[in-house]
C-alpha cells in the first residue's frame, strides 16, 4: 500500500530530522530505492524543485515524492506525516521541558549527533554524485562540462555566497545551452 509506505517513511523520518533537509536525503533515497518509487535521477530532480521552492527542503522533498508516487493524496499524506512529529515534539518540549536545550544530557547527545549529521550529508553528496554520473572519469565533453558546472556551482555558494535559487536557475539555463 503506497500511501501507508509514504506515511510511515516520512513520519519516522520526521522524528529524526536533525540537521536540515540535506541530512535527510539518505533516508529518502533508501526508502525510494526500497519501495521503487522512482529512479535516483528523478529523486535528484525532485530535490532540485524542493530547493527552488520556499519552505523546508525535507518537507518539500517529501511532498514532491508523495505527489509523484500517489498524486494529491500522496502529497497531503506525506506533508502531514513529516509535520506531525514536529508538532508532537514541540508541544511536548513546550509543555514539559522548556529548558530542554540547556540540559547536559541533550548537549552530550548533540555533541555526537552533529558530526554524524555531517557524515549523513557527506554520504548524501557521494551517493548523489554517483547516481548522477559525476564519478565517471572519462574524457568526454559531457563529463568535463559537468565537472566544470559542479566546480562553478560550489564556487558560487562558497565564495560568492549566491542564493542557491539563482545558482539553480543559472545552472538550468547553462544546461539548456549545452545539452539540448
Amino acid at each position: 500500500m503506497v500511501l501507508w509506505e509514504l506515511f510511515h517513511t516520512f513520519f519516522s523520518m520526521g522524528f529524526l530530522s536533525f540537521g536540515g533537509g540535506y541530512a535527510m536525503m539518505p533516508f529518502i533515497d533508501a526508502a525510494v530505492t526500497k519501495y521503487g518509487w522512482m529512479s535516483s535521477e528523478q529523486l535528484t530532480n525532485m530535490i532540485a524543485i524542493a530547493g527552488m521552492s520556499p519552505g523546508p527542503i525535507a518537507a518539500n522533498s517529501a511532498i514532491l515524492v508523495g505527489y509523484s508516487t500517489a498524486g494529491i493524496s500522496g502529497a497531503i499524506l506525506s506533508a502531514v506525516a513529516i509535520l506531525l512529529p514536529s508538532v508532537i515534539l514541540v508541544l511536548t518540549v513546550a509543555t514539559f521541558f522548556i529548558k530542554w536545550h540547556h540540559n547536559p544530557l541533550v548537549e552530550a547527545i548533540f555533541y555526537g549527533l552533529k558530526p554524524l549529521v555531517t557524515s549523513l550529508i557527506i554520504f548524501a553528496a557521494i551517493s548523489f554524485a554517483q547516481s548522477n554520473h559525476l564519478v565517471a572519469f572519462d574524457i568526454s565533453f559531457r563529463s568535463i562540462s559537468l565537472w566544470l558546472i559542479f566546480a562553478l556551482s560550489l564556487f558560487a555558494f562558497l565564495k560568492l555566497r549566491w542564493n542557491p535559487i539563482y545558482v539553480i536557475v543559472l545552472s538550468g539555463l547553462l544546461g539548456v545551452t549545452l545539452y539540448s
Binding site: E41, T44, A48, V167, I168, L173
Partner: peptide, 19 residues
C-alpha cells in the same frame, strides 16, 4: 531534460556546500 542534467550536478554541489 537538458536543464536538469546541469541542475542535478548543482544539487550535488549544494549538498557538498551544506556539508
Amino acid at each position: 531534460e537538458a536543464a536538469f542534467v546541469s541542475i542535478r550536478v548543482t544539487i550535488v554541489a549544494i549538498i557538498v556546500y551544506a556539508a
